[in-house]
Simulated scan of single mutants.
Amino acid sequence: MRKNDRVSACGKTINYEIVYSKKRKRAAILVRPDMRVEFRAPQGLSADTIRGMVEGKAQWIFKKLEWFEANRLPDQKKQYCEGEVYLYLGRECPLRITFVNDIKKPLAFFKNSELTVEISENTSEDQLPFLVKEAVWNFYSKRAEEEVEKLLKIYSKKFGVSTPVFMVKYQKKRWGSCSAKNVLRINFQLMMGPPKQLEYVVVHELCHVKEKNHSARFWKLVRELMPDYEKYRNSLKIDGWKYVL
């Protein structure tokens, strides 16, 4: 459940979103690079209590907001036009659009350090960005399916569990999730980052098959499967804002 609220502190107003979770045991405040403030709350925590906690962290929140304002990130929305730069496996690749005859559906593929989209020469100018976007998303999704399947087969065997059902999809705020029925969902935009980051997310969600929380037991399982996971967890936190399609 989500709701919006605000408090006044230090002569300014803090607008924030409260995100309730039945699984969460401790409250946490998150200041995002897009200047949004999120309060992650255990179920049942009152709005008044939350306001008091936000007021108590007001100076820290304003410092974070000021830093993000001073280091504002560029607009990451893609235009799907010739020459635009995309990340693939951690490398920057220019988008190349090639017009060809006798092609029914646009096709994207990686070739010669470029992300190439082949599209019908009869495509109108107003349709072009939408069709290029569809081809690019399909490319990243298909590649993610292939990589996740390989990783799950390897790690499920090490973990001693059956390979779980999974799907790759676009997720605005999550890199991965594991449902109560052990269906894994992995964000295909992870194909934009170095392969080890995707590997970490797959291992992370696989461990939720046995532990549906982030307890010490859970992190022990992650470390057993991927001893250096913290390196890739941290790099994903630092660079993940770049992975936008």
Results as ranks from 00 to 15, higher is better:
5 D>V: 09
64 K>F: 04
23 K>H: 12
128 L>G: 03
5 D>T: 07
75 D>S: 08
177 S>N: 03
150 K>D: 00
118 E>Y: 02
46 S>H: 12
9 A>N: 01
168 V>Y: 00
27 A>Y: 09
100 V>C: 10
42 P>Y: 05
198 L>S: 01
102 D>K: 12
243 Y>W: 08
40 R>S: 10
140 Y>E: 05
31 V>C: 10
31 V>D: 00
65 L>V: 06
63 K>I: 09
165 V>P: 03
168 V>I: 09
242 K>G: 05
133 K>N: 07
62 F>T: 03
44 G>F: 09
170 Y>R: 08
19 V>L: 13
12 K>E: 09
167 M>N: 14
169 K>G: 05
235 S>G: 11
224 E>N: 10
241 W>L: 08
151 L>Q: 02
172 K>R: 10
44 G>H: 11
5 D>L: 11
152 L>G: 01
168 V>R: 02
46 S>W: 12
134 E>S: 05
108 A>S: 00
224 E>G: 09
96 R>Q: 15
202 V>H: 02
105 K>M: 08
184 L>Y: 02
8 S>C: 12
244 V>T: 13
68 F>K: 08
188 F>I: 07
129 P>H: 02
113 S>L: 13
84 E>T: 02
241 W>Q: 06
39 F>I: 08
163 T>A: 09
231 K>L: 07
2 R>E: 15
